[in-house]
Design a binder for these strands. Structure first.
Lengths: 353, 353
DNA sequence: GCGGGGTGATAATTCGCATTATCAGCGGTT
DNA sequence: AACCGCTGATAATGCGAATTATCACCCCGC
């Protein structure tokens, strides 16, 4: 790099194509400070720049290819309009698109209208099948804040984010930490209650609820709602990978309807039941869009995933633009209402299926 | 922010959760320089740090929550392991998933194995229906390099990227600029030739090629391949939104096979032909995965989109890790071979369809 | 007792931008 | 003449990490 003389001080030749405020300043015949002031429309008692000068600087900028270096802005303590997106699994595979697709779409739209870019932390090292949020080289701090996606999250990650006052929002209800985690989720408890009511209306008195042995907040919400159901009797059963015992369970409990934790589970159950499932009602306590059982639309829930994403980014933006010690006034845990998807597999007791 | 006294110099109270090298240095009883050296495993004649000190610093780091600030690293001229992703349209909508999905998936996987994060420039303002890459607040420079996606790109954008020596790779063949643009694409010319050969084998002597009035490089590649076809006679026709004239054109040209620029076009054409299309062969000179015409798999191409993405990121990485003046040796324009998808709609001349 | 050379570190500077403190010049008062 | 207030601008500094230049110290040989 050649050294040139300017203003009495040693200075590098600017790399080609790398225009800085300094360069603009030189062209406009002012100081770098002034350029910064003009760019940020600063004005006040202590900062006065006549329109003539402003105009001169502006023209110099427009005739150049100047763009502010985001790294420098960030270092100087300003927002960068960059939102982090962290997913505990790969987000863009064809399989995960079913779940992440609508969320990502909502996030993209929201980011677009907020004027933010999205930083996907695809580099996070995988440990025990899950990505780690914090690692030696995490670019997390480059973002103004971060959205967390995934069925299960790491409690330590969440604790640490809270402890560091880093703005973030989890998608999906969370309760794995003592600290209050900001989240936007679906009120599965209410939905579960509504579906149970519907089943009661249809005459079902004994229901079998099959769920996975999973300790997530939403799983507990569903169980709690099932437990306090005042209509039908609900028998609980944990399932693993083996569905051979399902027909026996149904017979044993005398259930006329089988609910399961999610749509995939219902599919497995229907398969295991075979013909014995005829006449039984089925429903998933989760999103059922696109799922069919024997040609019939599966009963369950419709969850507004795009809306969740939009709400999550809105909350994130609020957190970012509020100083840590003033965030007390923000409602950081938000549950959205989904709706019951009637479908065709939850029918009147004894009705044909 | 409170001012405290430290080391004889005025210094801010560190924001909670913001651990810097300085802080580590204080704990380990060394200078910030030393911490930096240890972190980067620097060693040499001019830099000597005994193992004892190294160890002390390492322990201090491990016991803290230190993570390097990417903005500062970047400002100091280092790579950030961040790759930009720019799409000329929204990438994550359900509709665009058909096209972008496999590409994005490939990009995510490649980024994962390269240890890079992905920055999506979702904030770019939309002008004339397309996003602008360069704008006042672009965060482009935060990335080490950038992948460009989209059917049509802006020539000025490409020129400017080349002029600024910014590492980038376009997905899809490009020729809208004088400057040599790095790209990874599909060899549509070869594929078109192969499909024409196949049609010839099947006895087709007159083919109608219908294409959009679009001036993209790949569109020209197809046309060029069609023009130099030595087998069948190919009649060209430009179509707009109105397909009413299609049956007439077929009759007029005496074509026994109709090729179109892409699968959607074939679908429209088949619709316009109705029963008159019976017996006619159809094919798209593009990816046909998932497209069926009257229950038959559409004939056309299979393009290795994931592989394109992987190759694009590999090339990008090469460009990034090579100084601008030494990039001469890199093959920056790469065409991958796709394969002809025989399908069921390109059949022997006169055969039932 | 003085120079040479290796050792182990640090002070100073840089990156690009924002901000704070400071200053030179001018006109009007007392 | 000394003082004040206003204007228009700039020098200096900080942000966090990397890099360069420099230094203090000790041991060795003569």
């Amino acid at each position: 790099m050649r050294i040139i003389e300017f203003d009495g001080k040693r200075q590098m030749t600017p790399k080609p194509g790398k225009v800085t405020q300094r360069e603009i300043a030189r062209i406009a015949g002012v100081s770098q400070t002034t350029v910064s002031m003009v760019l940020n429309d600063r004005d006040g008692s202590n900062i006065r720049i006549p329109d003539a000068t402003r105009e001169r600087v502006r023209r110099a900028i427009e005739q150049s290819t100047y763009v502010a270096d985001p790294a420098a802005r960030r270092l100087a303590g300003l927002d960068n309009k960059i939102l982090g997106v962290f997913t505990y699994e790969s987000a863009l595979t064809p399989e995960s698109m079913d779940f992440y697709g609508p969320l990502l779409n909502g996030i993209e739209r929201a980011a677009e209208s907020l004027g933010c870019d999205l930083l996907f932390f695809t580099s996070s090292p995988v440990e025990e099948g899950r990505r780690r949020l914090f690692h030696r080289q995490t670019r997390l701090r480059l973002a103004d804040g971060c959205v967390l996606l995934g069925q299960q999250m790491d409690g330590d990650d969440l604790e640490r984010l809270v402890a560091e006052d880093f703005p973030f929002v989890a998608v999906g209800r969370r309760d794995e930490t003592d600290a209050p985690v900001p989240y936007v989720g679906i009120d599965y408890g209410a939905l579960t209650g509504a579906l149970l009511d519907r089943a009661a209306e249809l005459g079902h008195e004994r229901i079998l609820y099959m769920h996975r042995d999973r300790n997530s907040p939403t799983a507990r919400d569903r169980l709690a709602a099932v437990a306090r159901a005042d209509g039908p009797d609900v028998a609980l059963a944990v399932v693993g990978d083996d569905f051979a015992g399902v027909p026996g369970l149904v017979a044993e409990t005398g259930a006329t309807a089988v609910f399961a934790e999610d749509a995939f589970l219902v599919e497995d159950i229907a398969l295991a039941l075979g013909d014995e499932g005829a006449g039984l009602s089925l429903a998933a306590l989760a999103e059922v869009r696109g799922h069919r059982i024997g040609g019939r639309a599966l009963s369950g829930f419709h969850t507004p995933r795009q809306q969740i994403a939009a709400e999550a980014l809105a909350l994130l933006q609020e957190l970012i633009s509020t100083a840590p010690d003033e965030r007390g006034g923000i409602e950081i845990q938000r549950l959205l209402q989904g709706e019951v998807a009637l479908g065709d597999t939850l029918t009147a007791r004894g009705g044909a299926r």
